[in-house]
Design a protein around this nucleic acid. Structure first.
Lengths: 198, 198
DNA sequence: GTCTATAGGCCGATAGAC
DNA sequence: GTCTATCGGCCTATAGAC
């Protein structure tokens, strides 16, 4: 897929995604996005009007990538709780191995700009009455399902958030990190099921 | 402790800490720091020369706050592994309840600026041959100690990283979050010991 | 649609008075 | 040490030619 096959608009979006993700909103210059996209600064404004509007488009895609993909898993009537854990783990590690900067980008930008993600994705309604929540409560009534879910997200996402620290402190190098994450893909479900059965 | 009791230098540092933590390096204006400190922009430069140098001072304090406090716990020859878990959990939740933005600030700024934290705190040397690492390996030889440590840090830190998301999605409100975190202070050690004994 | 050139404002840093 | 005033540069956004 060469860049010449993409529309100008998509080239800009792709470049914006890359640079916003690396440097954050405030740290990004529209000039850099234009250069990365191989076009002129004026053209960027021709397509997206302002830096802010371009950012919102990128953010929307990232939110959906981060939270949208597991909605079908969470809502499925057919799969068991154990299957959901396996599937969600598989899915998330796949996403984060491809997009290692996705979590830190979304978390830090939401922290700074309080963009209204609820209008992008009504995740609260999906989750609160989901099949998944019922299954957790049934399996282990004495455990707040939110603790369970947070534990899952923690153990899955956190290694990617902490990656720069692990590398800076020389606790791992890049290939070791890859291996480490690959191991967790199967270990996290084991730990989660342990919490359910004890 | 009124602000008039602080030296001008400390007033600036305090203001800088607050605003850098909220908006990140790139999103912060030195004018805002000066205003927050109740002094003039010129005076800020008189004390710290540049924005960059001021930031480094703040960052150094944050790194030590985030990683320095648990070094004595990790290295103690006297305490058992179980005690270390309890103490570290207690300590970290105390730090994060007081400084909820600390983790996201440090993680996102290190991601963007690759500041050399190893020179600030030689954490790798401390950790790699620590009593804690030996105790984990002894207790559960088939488990990579790094997985264990990451799990602990994940479950402790992640709720604070995800707080803006939880609130944005209306999954919790502020008092519910406080209660949630308070619960985890005792639950995380329970889960960690579960992983050790299964 | 795409470019060059530039307006217009913001921000970090400094000069210089007190 | 602390202030006011201002410089010089950078960055977003736009005007206008092609």
């Amino acid at each position: 897929m060469k860049s010449s096959e993409l529309s100008t608009e998509d080239k800009i979006l792709l470049a914006a995604s890359k640079i916003f993700t690396a440097k954050g909103y405030a740290g990004t210059r529209t000039r850099d996005i234009a250069e990365e996209a191989g076009i002129n600064l004026a053209l960027l404004n021709y397509y997206f009007r302002t830096k802010e509007k371009l950012f919102e488009q990128v953010m929307k895609v990232k939110i959906v990538l981060l939270f949208g993909q597991i909605i079908p898993i969470v809502m499925s009537e057919k799969s068991s709780l154990e299957d959901k854990i396996d599937q969600a783990s598989e899915k998330y590690f796949e996403i984060f191995i491809k997009n290692p900067n996705l979590p830190i980008f979304v978390l830090s930008e939401i922290h700074k700009k309080t963009s209204d993600i609820k209008t992008i994705l009504p995740f609260d309604k999906v989750l609160k009455n989901s099949v998944l929540m019922k299954q957790i409560q049934e399996k282990k009534p004495d455990l707040d399902p939110f603790h369970f879910l947070l534990n899952f997200l923690s153990m899955t996402i956190f290694p990617f958030l902490g990656k720069p620290i692990l590398l800076s402190f020389d606790l791992m190098n890049e290939p070791e990190f890859q291996k480490f994450v690959e191991e967790r893909k199967t270990l996290v479900p084991v730990w989660m099921k342990m919490m359910l059965n004890n």
